[in-house]
């Protein structure tokens, strides 16, 4: 009888207890970071700071925009329903986060300043009674509203450039770490004199972590920067609209 034997053999990388001795070929993220060179550690620290700061800005802006939107809705509701500017002015204290409140308060102050000396009566009354006060200069009110719009826009846009900066430089910082790590890996190859994958791979894996961290910091920053810019644009339109509405009311009632 003819016998044909085939031996097949599976060598398994010993796991569990046996893996403590395996220093050369691990790919675990935590171990890679712990073992990485000081330059890469510094790069990772920088990226972590950027990520923390940009997320702080993101959370802050999310929170303040949400409040601004909520307050704007309430404020517009009040503004369109009430017949006196003084009533609206009284509500403004509780709705301070809406940019429209800023515009209204500025316009109201300007109107007050212009109306008080000649009339002396009730200057904030747009309903126009018999002793109707008149406005000295409507363009001055317009300019005051423009100033208010600019101030509110600046406030809304504040800190957003930081997000843009984070979005554009963190990938580069990460890339720097990677390039540095690969340089080190090549030096290592030169010293060992072997291009064995086991020599090269850990260094490169460790270097690539920096790029991954850079992208981790950059991607949310890009997303939220775009989202926030878009929302600021919406606010700007709303403010322009409101300025014109305010001017119209002022013109109708005080000229």
């Amino acid at each position: 009888m003819r016998t044909l034997g085939v031996l097949a053999l599976v060598l398994q990388a010993p796991g569990g207890a046996a893996s403590q001795g395996a220093v050369g070929s691990t790919t675990d993220i935590v171990e890679l970071v712990v073992r990485s060179s000081p330059v890469i550690k510094v790069v990772l620290l920088f990226l972590a700071l950027f990520s923390v700061a940009s997320w702080a800005v993101i959370l802050f802006k999310l929170w303040s925009f949400r409040r601004a939107e909520k307050h704007t809705t309430v404020f517009l509701d009040v503004f369109r329903k009430s017949s006196k500017f003084s009533e609206v002015q009284a509500v403004c204290r509780t709705l301070g986060d809406s940019p429209l409140v800023g515009i209204f308060q500025t316009g109201y102050a300007e109107l007050n300043g212009q109306l008080r000396p000649p009339a002396g009566g009730n200057p904030g009354n747009p309903s126009g009674v018999a002793t109707r006060p008149t406005l000295k200069s409507l363009p001055a009110v317009d300019r005051a509203l423009l100033r208010a719009t600019a101030v509110e826009l600046t406030k809304l846009e504040r800190r957003l450039p930081f997000l843009a900066t984070t979005a554009s430089i963190t990938p580069f910082i990460g890339l720097f770490g990677t390039v540095w790590g690969i340089m080190a890996a090549f030096q290592n190859i030169g010293q060992v004199g072997s291009t064995n994958l086991a020599v090269v791979a850990p260094g490169i894996a460790e270097a690539l972590i920096a790029t991954a961290a850079g992208l981790f910091a950059a991607i949310p920053a890009v997303y939220f920067y775009n989202a926030f810019t878009n929302r600021v644009k919406l606010f700007a339109t709303e403010m322009d609209d409101f300025s014109l509405e305010f001017l119209n009311i002022a013109e109708k009632n005080f000229t």
Binding site: L4, L7, A8, L9, V10, L11
Partner: peptide, 8 residues
Amino acid sequence: PTVMTISL
């Protein structure tokens, strides 16, 4: 796992 095959 690394697979090695020997045929005899």
